[in-house]
Design a protein around this nucleic acid. Sequence first.
DNA 1: AATGAATGAGAGTTCATTCAT
DNA 2: CATGAATGAACTCTCATTCAT
Lengths: 210, 210, 210, 210
Amino acid sequence: MARTVDQARHEARRLVIVDAALTVFAARGYDGATTAAICRQARIGSGTLFHYFPTKLAILLGILEYGTREVRESAAAYEGREDPVGVLLEIVGRSADEAADPRVPGFVRAAAGVMHLPEVAAALEADADAQRARLRPWVERGQELGEVRTDLTDARIVSWLMLLTDGFLERVAAEPGFTAAGERDLLVATAREFLHPGGRPARRGGRVSR
Amino acid sequence: MARTVDQARHEARRLVIVDAALTVFAARGYDGATTAAICRQARIGSGTLFHYFPTKLAILLGILEYGTREVRESAAAYEGREDPVGVLLEIVGRSADEAADPRVPGFVRAAAGVMHLPEVAAALEADADAQRARLRPWVERGQELGEVRTDLTDARIVSWLMLLTDGFLERVAAEPGFTAAGERDLLVATAREFLHPGGRPARRGGRVSR
Amino acid sequence: MARTVDQARHEARRLVIVDAALTVFAARGYDGATTAAICRQARIGSGTLFHYFPTKLAILLGILEYGTREVRESAAAYEGREDPVGVLLEIVGRSADEAADPRVPGFVRAAAGVMHLPEVAAALEADADAQRARLRPWVERGQELGEVRTDLTDARIVSWLMLLTDGFLERVAAEPGFTAAGERDLLVATAREFLHPGGRPARRGGRVSR
Amino acid sequence: MARTVDQARHEARRLVIVDAALTVFAARGYDGATTAAICRQARIGSGTLFHYFPTKLAILLGILEYGTREVRESAAAYEGREDPVGVLLEIVGRSADEAADPRVPGFVRAAAGVMHLPEVAAALEADADAQRARLRPWVERGQELGEVRTDLTDARIVSWLMLLTDGFLERVAAEPGFTAAGERDLLVATAREFLHPGGRPARRGGRVSR
DNA sequence: AATGAATGAGAGTTCATTCAT
DNA sequence: CATGAATGAACTCTCATTCAT
C-alpha cells in the first residue's frame, strides 16, 4: 500500500514538473528554457528536478511520452463505432481543440527545434506512429464502406490528415487572428471534403461533437 | 566604382556565410549550431564571421530577410496575369518545390524553435506578411471573377493556403516517405479544391507549371 | 544493561559502515566515493549513514582511527619480549601481511589524496605517531644490546623502517607483479640488513613468524 | 616561421598552466583543486584554460606526461657509461633531489588519489614503465660485471629500487623532520647496500654527484 | 580585411546533508 | 531507529564575442 501511495505521489510530482516544463518550453523554446526557470515554475529546488529526471532532455522526452500515451489511450475510445468518417473527423476536431491550449503550439515548435537530437527525433516518430495507428483503421474501414476516397492509399490519406492538423497548429501559433476555436469547423469541413471529395454534406446542422 | 566593387564583394561574402549558416542551422537547430561550426562550414575564421554579422542571431535574421526578399521579388513575376487561380496554384506549387531542398524544412524548424525571441518573431511575421501580400490580390481577383469561393473572406482563404503549405513542409520534414516531389500534385489539387469546392477540374492533362 | 547492548549494537553498525566505506574509498578514492555508494555497499539508507557519522569526512577519520587503535593495541602484544630485532621484524612483516588485503593500499592512497584537509593530516600524523611509538622502544633496546646499528639515531632508524613499509605498500598497489606474499620475506631481510648492516643472518631456517 | 613561433608560444602557455596546476594539485589534491583556482594561479581566464586542455583531467595527465618525458630524456644522458652501479645510484639520488621540490610529493599523492580513473592509472603505468626502462639495463649490466647481486632477478631489483625512492618520497611528504637533502645520502647508501650486500664501500670520500 | 587566442558569463548537473515521516 | 525525498551550494565546461596583430 505504501508502495502504491509512494508511486502515486511520485507520479503526481513528476506531473507537476512536466506541467511546469511544458509551460517554460512553450514560452522560451528548449534551449531558452533554463532548468532554473523550470524549477521556479514548479516551485522546487534544482536538486529535486534532477531527482525526477536525469537530464533536461529527459523532461522534454517525458512530456512527449505523456502526449503519445494520451494518443494511444484516446484511440481506445472509438472502438465499436460504425461511422468511420465520423470517427476521423472527431479525431481531427479534437486535435484542433488541443491547439486551443496556447502552450501546445509553442511546445510543438520547441520540440521541433531540437529534432536534430536523435532521442527527440525518435520520440516524435513514436508520437507520429501512434497518431497514424489511431487514424489508419478508420480510413481503411471508410474505404471499404465507400465513404472514403479510394484514389489514394490509406497511408497517404492518413499523412494528409496529419498535414491538415499540423498546418492548423502552425497557423494558430503564427497568426494571432487564426484561433483554434474560430477555425475548428472549417478544419473539420476541409478534412471531410478531403476524405470524400464532392460527397454529400454531412447531416445538416451537424456540428461535429467534441 | 571601387566602392561598388567592394560592396559586391562584401555582399558575396555575406552570402557565403548565410549559405553556410543555413546548412548548419538546418542540421543542428539554432542553439545547436555553434558559430565555430558555421565558420568551419563557410571556411572562414571566427573573427571574419563577426566582421559581417554582429551576432549569431543577426545571421539567422539575415537568412530570414533573404527569404522574405525573395518572396517579395517573386510576387512581381505574376503581374499582368489574368488567371488568378492559376497564379495561386503556381505559388503553392513553388512552395512545394522549395520544400524539396532538404535544408528548408530543417531551417524552418530551427527558426520556429527560437520564435520566442522578439526579433525572430518580428522577422517571421514580416515573412508571413510578404506571403500574404503575394497571395491576397489574386484571391480577391479570383473572388471577383467567380473562380474562388466567396463563403470565406479573402484573408481567411489566404491563411488556409498558408496552412496547406506549412503543413506540407512539416510533413516533408517529419515523414521520410512523404516527399516534396511525390506529393506536389496532390497539394496543388487540394488547394484548387479548397479555393473552389466542386469546381470543374482544371484544363485536362494540365500540370501546374513550376 | 540495555544501554550496553545498545552501545554494542551501535558499535557493530558503525563497523559495518566503516567496512563498507573502506571498500568504496579504496575502489574510488575519497571524492570518487559518493555517500550513496557507501550506503549501497553497507545496505543502509542515506539517513542511517548520517545517523552514525555526521559527515563523509568523519567516516574517513573513523577508519583511520580504527587503524591507529589497532596499531596501539598490537603494540601491547610485544611486551616482555627480549629480542628487539625479532620484534621489529615481526612488526615490519605484519605490515606486509596487511598489504595483502587489496583494499589497504587503495585506501591508503585515497587518504593520502586528501591529506591537504587538516583533519586528515592530523589523523595520519596520529597514526604515524602510533607507529613510531610502537617501533622506537625496540630500536632503542636493540641499540643498547648492540643488535641494532648506532650510527643513526633511533628516530631516524624508525623513519627508515616506515619508509620501507610505505614503499612496500606503494609497490604492491602499483605493480601487479609485486605481491605482498611474494615479496614479504625480502622486505624482512632488507629491514634486518638495514637494522644491522653486515650482521649475521638471523636464526637459520628462520622465517619471521606472522 | 609563424607556425613555429605560434607553436612555441602555445607550448610556453601550456607550460604556464601545467606549472600552476602542479602547484594547486599539490596543495589541494585533485578534487580539491578547482579549475577556478588553477586559473587564478596561472593568471588566465577559465576559457583560456579550456582552450589549452579539454578537461581538468587532461591537465593532470599533461603533467604526468611531462614527467614521463623527462624520465625518458634523462635516460639518454647515461649512455656510454661503464659503471652501472654508479649510474643506478645517480638515478636514485636524482629522484631524491626531485623530492626536495615541496610540490612533488604533494602532486604524487594527488595523482595517486585518483588512480582509480583508468586514464590516470594508464599514465602512472606509463611513467613506471619509463622508470623501469631507465633502470633495468644498468641492473643487467651490473649483474654481468658482478657488481650487482644475482640472487634476485633484474626486474625484482628494479622494483625494489623504485620501492626505495617511492618510500623516500612518501616519508618526505609525511614527516616534516625527514628532508630530502638530509636523507639523500642515506638513501643512496641503502640502495648501494641493496644492490650489492656487503660490497666494499664506494670510493672513499665519494659523494654521489648530483 | 582577416584572423584566432583570450575571455567570462552562464549553463546543466552532482552530491553531501537535512528532516519529516 | 531508519528512511529517502528534498535541497542548493558549488563544480566543470561551453560558446558567443572581443580585439591585438
